[in-house]
Nucleic acid binder design. Structure first.
Lengths: 188, 188
DNA sequence: TGAATTATATAGACCAGTTGTTATAATTAG
DNA sequence: CTAATTATAACAACTGGTCTATATAATTCA
């Protein structure tokens, strides 16, 4: 076959789904669209994901979460203070947003807002993703001197600010909200 | 007809759409579902909203935004400090979230994430809504002593934090993220 | 080794149900 | 009488999912 290694179509399906979910959410993303872009047949989709669209979406949310986690961990390893960490991360996001005409924000938030009340598997994937990100924020804050409990609450606040900034940035089509975080260091 | 005053169906359509968009977003909300709950005929929908689903959604986003704006303005009139304003607003949101099993967050954010890249009318409605809310935050911060420029940037940060907290709260199914805002007054 | 057997994976036709929209007829109210 | 509004029916396009047939790779056995 043209596909060299096994699970080739599986990988293509997930990558495509990640992209489409980020851009347009769950309900607006059709199976046929995913298949066409992935160049995968419908049989493969239901072979790898017997649970259909829902299972594919859950797997894509997990995969996208892991990518974000890796970015955060890399940043964790190359920064010392929380302030520096936040600044650099927001600057990164700012660049991505501008580059994509403010369409590529958080890869999972749209899907989660839609599907958390409807799908347990997707909800679980999202909760695990968010929790894993929050761990990184907490660690950095703890490294910076905060005690565990305080670090966790501050981590929640920082994550909320960033998620909200990405949302506002998408709607306003401007980097302003991310700049607001970068400029106001008193939130740390 | 049973409908007493004119535009009765129009109002019902908007109220229903507001509810459904908040719970499940744009793409997952079908016209048939809206019509059934509204007890309105299909003819009326296209009579009042010739632009179809998109126009109805835009009108609903506007209407929902105005409701939020009224809540904020009422709160503005009965609080003195920014800290009090934020605390009381987040407590209000916290209660609504818990009451609805963490499904009723921001009434427009899901729809906006989905549709901002696709629909100019919905995007416009959302931008105007967010801007009107931000004005209230800015006014309160200015009243508290901040100069205009600083007040606007802080208003953006506060709005982002609240939006993000509502998102996290929905996904985590817990009031934690809203509590994090209430507890950490150093963001002001 | 080479043939037989079994998993793994690909391929796409097909289905019933639903989508948003349009057209047209009937009804109501001023 | 004439607008305004309601009420249906029908529309093509598309939805996610099921199904069967086939090809390829891996494993087993002589």
């Amino acid at each position: 076959m043209t596909a060299a290694n096994s699970k080739h179509h599986r990988k293509a399906l997930i990558q495509t789904t990640i992209r489409l979910l980020r851009k347009q959410g769950y309900a607006a993303t059709g199976l046929n669209e995913i298949l066409k872009i992935s160049k995968a047949p419908k049989g493969s989709l239901y072979y790898y994901f017997p649970g259909g669209k829902e299972e594919l979406a859950a797997a894509s949310v997990s995969a996208a979460s892991k990518t974000v986690l890796k970015t955060l961990e890399k940043l964790e390893g190359t920064t010392t203070t929380t302030s520096e960490f936040i600044s650099r991360y927001c600057t990164l996001l700012r660049g991505w947003m501008a580059q994509s005409n403010y369409t590529e924000g958080c890869p999972i938030s749209t899907t989660l807002l839609e599907m958390v009340p409807k799908s347990d598997v997707i909800k679980k994937a999202g909760q695990e993703g968010f929790a894993s990100w929050k761990s990184v924020f907490s660690r950095i804050l703890a490294r910076d001197g905060l005690e565990m409990r305080a670090a966790q609450e501050k981590a929640t606040l920082l994550m909320a600010s960033i998620q909200g900034a990405l949302l506002l940035s998408r709607v306003e089509q401007s980097p302003g909200p991310l700049d607001a975080i970068i400029n106001q260091k008193e939130i740390l």
